[in-house]
């Protein structure tokens, strides 16, 4: 196709870079709404059971460490900031900063997963993983939780699926890092950075909801 605006950075099916960029953004957002619905199923289950087993959920939630969760939220919010700054660096064509911010994002993302792994290990030790070995002790004053196993099933399902998304995100970041070191991105072509950024922020948003839902049910 002999389109004046065509160059190697614009795929054959698009007329110009702007159409390509808008299509990529809308495409990513369309994918993200599928992700919203994906987590929606878990949030639905959470909502129903929390409403039904209020007492168990209050007691079970107290077992989780608020401050570890809070720390992890901070880590993730910082990673979102570095990601946003990375996209900005890409927009300005600043390759060095882009590489730096992607590395920073990856470090914070990995830190989040590390803390999560520590929390999981602790749950294993305390027999809080659903299954035949599950045994709920609770914290003093809040020992009674007949349906605690449901809470922990949801805890592992929700945080597990979230962690899986983080791992996918780290994979995307690795890919971005390689490409940005090679100098693929420029002022005129930074779509991949932008849409990977959208994904990263989305995973952050999911955690913004999971943290109060799982850790902050009742702390008074």
């Amino acid at each position: 196709m002999s389109d004046a605006a065509h160059n190697s950075l614009v795929a054959h099916q698009f007329d110009d870079a702007r159409q390509q960029q808008e299509a990529a953004t809308v495409g990513m957002w369309t994918f993200l709404i599928t992700e919203i619905m994906f987590f929606g199923g878990l949030i639905l289950a959470y909502m129903i059971y929390r409403n039904q087993f209020a007492e168990s959920f209050h007691a079970a939630s107290r077992v989780l460490d608020v401050w570890v969760g809070c720390f992890n939220t901070c880590v993730l919010l910082v990673s979102s900031l570095t990601m946003a700054l990375g996209v900005r660096a890409a927009q300005m064509g600043d390759r060095k900063k882009l590489v730096l911010f992607i590395i920073a994002t990856m470090i914070f993302g990995a830190a989040f997963l590390g803390v999560k792994a520590y929390e999981y290990a602790e749950k294993f030790e305390h027999h809080l993983v659903p299954g035949p070995t599950f045994h709920f002790h609770g914290v003093p004053g809040h020992e009674h939780a007949p349906n605690a196993e449901i809470f922990f099933s949801l805890y592992f399902a929700m945080t597990g699926v979230h962690a899986l998304h983080m791992i996918v995100g780290l994979g995307l970041m690795t890919w971005l890092l390689r490409k940005s070191i090679k100098g693929t991105f420029s002022k005129d072509y930074y779509n991949p950075v932008e849409i990977c950024g959208l994904y990263w922020h989305f995973v952050d948003i999911v955690w913004i909801f999971l943290y109060p839902l799982l850790y902050l049910i009742d702390r008074s």
Partner: peptide
């Protein structure tokens, strides 16, 4: 397809977690 499919997907995941890993939802 975009708005509905992920919901059945998470349903299947929940069954898999329940069947495979012993979670109880």
């Amino acid at each position: 397809m975009v708005l509905g499919t992920p919901v059945v997907a998470i349903g299947i995941v929940m069954i898999a977690l329940e069947r495979g890993l012993g979670l109880g939802i």
